[in-house]
Amino acid sequence: QTELNQMVESMNLLLESLKNHESLNVDLYSGLLVDASIVKLPYLYFLPDVSKENEISLVPYIASQHSATWRISKYLNELLRPFVDKIVSTVFTKRELQSTTLFCAIKITNYHKLDIHKNMIDTVSYFLEENLITNKLEQVTIQNIKNLLHIFLYNNVFYYKDQIYTLTKGSPNTMPLADTLSNIYVFVWQKQILKQLQLNNEFFGRYKDQIFLTWSNGNEEQLGSFLQTIRDKSPNVQFQKLIASSVPFLNAFVQNQNGDLFSRIHRHPLIQGYSLPYEVGHAKLVHSDWLRSALIRAVCYCSSVEDFNLERIYLELTCLTNGYSL
């Protein structure tokens, strides 16, 4: 408790000094101030990832809703997220699928612990400088975003088995800001891939830690060695790759059928079938929305009507199995 209080005190001192230098106005300052009486030390827990056969891997979570950094993270995320979403959603594409075009699915395995805090702050700053017309985002200067980011990143602590830990890379994945920061970092990192792909009119898409790209410029070996050079240049981003003429990507199975794009729904073979996503709160409402969006997704994903019908029946059966009427 003493350590936690000291940490809160040092955070508030930094905020106060920002206010005194007129970097923060009084309202924002009082909104970000950390209230030691309600702050709780976050704890670490794990959930099993059962997607690999014969192996349990672990997904770490940090319960962070009452942490000292919560308010700053909420503020920064609401500031950065709309801008980041706008910038990173740019897609370069010309439809030039050939019969020999290979598909590649990449999964970044350390998405929430990409780099040390200093480098993360530098990357966010570089990203903002490059994409903002002025040095401000919604009246907040880049320097000030860096200051707040510094307070946030260096004060994320948690406990696990009677010891208090601090994060040296990344931030708690339970905070939306963690996603936003990783998104910025990977956006900057992926530029070196895009540079090459754009030369050859390839397709590139990314959702969080998962990337899909096409490769018409050579064989599997050449794509492999290209990705190896990316790995060597930026060892901080760790990833697994899958290269073939058909790959699963997110929930889709994407195939190159002699130059024609074919896709259908892909379901992970180890995930139990006919189950609804786990929801808390208004489960009935959420599951009803889920059915609607799952049907829309099926329309978008399925190249053939037969595949769509199979998926529709599967989704309807899932609802019935779980006690819902259609």
């Binding site: 794990f46 770490p60 602590v157 088995k161 830990y165 040296t168 990344g170």
Partner: peptide, 25 residues
């Protein structure tokens, strides 16, 4: 979960071997 003991051990290994965490106290 299958084997809870294995899960516990893996969790401990995860924390002690991860380069993202450092003991503060």
């Amino acid at each position: 979960l299958g084997n809870c003991q294995e899960f516990e051990t893996k969790a401990y290994d995860y924390v002690s071997k991860s380069d993202a965490y450092k003991v503060l106290l």
